[in-house]
């Protein structure tokens, strides 16, 4: 089931990757706002969003 798979893949991310992506995608914050909310440097959040999505892509096997 797609949803179960997504859930498993999200659990495979680091906390920072998962929180960054969730706050941006599901809560609609910009990455600068996410950085402030997570008290994490802006460049770190930016790269975690990309790393996290790439890891999700590999886990989900989408877009290949």
């Amino acid at each position: 089931m797609e949803y179960e798979r997504l859930r498993r893949c999200l659990q495979g991310l680091t906390d920072l990757q998962r929180e960054s992506i969730s706050l941006a995608y599901y809560s609609g914050y910009t990455y600068r706002e996410v950085a402030e909310m997570l008290a994490t440097p802006v460049p770190t959040v930016k790269t975690r969003m990309r790393d996290g999505l790439i890891r999700l892509r590999d886990c989900l096997g989408v877009g290949a």
Binding site: Y25, Y31, K46, M49
Partner: peptide
Amino acid sequence: HTLIGAYALDALDEAD
């Protein structure tokens, strides 16, 4: 280039 993740999530402001 590293902005591409935030872009895919629609998490960039106008300038970025």
